[in-house]
C-alpha cells in the first residue's frame, strides 16, 4: 500500500505549475531552437522542413564579408579582453581591499556602465570621438568595449575576493614575504579563477555587443553582429541562421567554460 503523495509545498509537482513552466520554456526556446534547426533546412523559403543540408554553413564560411567581420570581432574581443581584464582586476582588488573617501559615489560612478541604457553610452561615445576628432573604426570600438567591460570584470573579481581570507596575506607577511611576493604567491593564486571567469565574460560581452559597436563603428570596421544585422535587415535567410548558430555556439561554449571554472573554484576553497 505504498503511497507517493506530493507534499503540500511541492508546487513543482502540481500539474498546473508544470504546464505553466512548460509553456514558459517553450516560449524561451522555440525561437532559438527553430532558428538553429532551420539553418540546416534545405530550402530558401525557410519555413517547412525540406531535408538536412550544410549548404548554408558552406555559404556563410565562403562569404568573405562575413569572414572579415568575424576576424574584426575576434581582434576587438581579444584586445578588449586583455586590457579590460587587467584594468578590471585592478579595480576589483582596489574596491575589495580599500576604504577611501567618497567611496559610495566612486563605486556608483565605476559601475555606471553596467546600469545605464546602452543607447545612452553609445551616443555619448559618438559625441566624444567626434569632439576629439578620432575617426570611427576598430580603435574606437575597442576603446568603448574596454570601457564597458571593466566594471563587469571588477564585479566578478570582487565577488571572488569576498571569499578570501585576509589572514592568509597577513600570515605570508608575518613569515617574511614582501607585499609583492605575498601578492604573487598568496593572493594571485586565489584570484585566478575569478580572472579566467572575468576574461571569458569580457570576451563574450565584446563578441556579442551590438548597440555600442553599431554606433562607434565606421566604414570598414564591420563586426560579426553588425554584419548579421545588415543581413537581417534585408531578409530572413538560412545563411543568416547558419552564421547566427556559429555565434551562439561560440558564446555558449565560452560561458559554460566560465561557469565550470567558477563553480569548480568555489567548491573546495570555501570549505
Amino acid at each position: 500500500m505504498a503511497k507517493d503523495r506530493a507534499n503540500p509545498l511541492d508546487y513543482s509537482r502540481k500539474t498546473w505549475m508544470r504546464l505553466c513552466m512548460g509553456f514558459t520554456f517553450v516560449f524561451l526556446y522555440f525561437p532559438i531552437v527553430s532558428l538553429i534547426a532551420f539553418s540546416f533546412n534545405d530550402s530558401k523559403r525557410n519555413i517547412t522542413w525540406q531535408g538536412f543540408t550544410l549548404r548554408y554553413y558552406e555559404q556563410a564560411f565562403n562569404n568573405s564579408q562575413l569572414h572579415e567581420a568575424f576576424l574584426n570581432s575576434l581582434i576587438i574581443a581579444g584586445i578588449s579582453t586583455t586590457v579590460s581584464t587587467i584594468l578590471g582586476a585592478m579595480l576589483g582588488l582596489a574596491l575589495y581591499r580599500f576604504r577611501f573617501p567618497a567611496q559610495g559615489p566612486y563605486e556608483g560612478l565605476v559601475h555606471l556602465p553596467i546600469v545605464i541604457p546602452e543607447i545612452c553610452m553609445a551616443v555619448a561615445m559618438v559625441a566624444f570621438f567626434a569632439t576629439v576628432n578620432m575617426p570611427l573604426g576598430l580603435t574606437t570600438i575597442t576603446v568603448s568595449h574596454i570601457a564597458f567591460s571593466i566594471p563587469f570584470v571588477a564585479v566578478v573579481i570582487r565577488a571572488r575576493m569576498a571569499g578570501f581570507d585576509r589572514s592568509l596575506e597577513e600570515a605570508s607577511r608575518d613569515l617574511g614575504a614582501s607585499q609583492w611576493q605575498t601578492f604573487w604567491n598568496v593572493t594571485y593564486p586565489y584570484m585566478k579563477p575569478g580572472l579566467v571567469a572575468g576574461a571569458l565574460l569580457a570576451f563574450t560581452l565584446s563578441l556579442d555587443d551590438f548597440v555600442i559597436t553599431f554606433f562607434t563603428s565606421g566604414p570598414g570596421s564591420t563586426t560579426f553582429p553588425i554584419k548579421i544585422y545588415s543581413m537581417v535587415r534585408f531578409s530572413v535567410t538560412p545563411e543568416v541562421n547558419a552564421a547566427s548558430t556559429v555565434l551562439i555556439v561560440i558564446t555558449l561554449a565560452l560561458t559554460v567554460a566560465a561557469l565550470i571554472i567558477q563553480s569548480r573554484s568555489q567548491g573546495p576553497t570555501h570549505a
Partner: peptide
Amino acid sequence: AGFESPSEGEILIDGEDMDGVEP
C-alpha cells in the same frame, strides 16, 4: 501536521483517517 505524507500506514486524528487531508 500534514506537511509530509506517510509512504505506508495510516494516521488517525480523533478517529478520522488523515490520508490526503491537506494541512
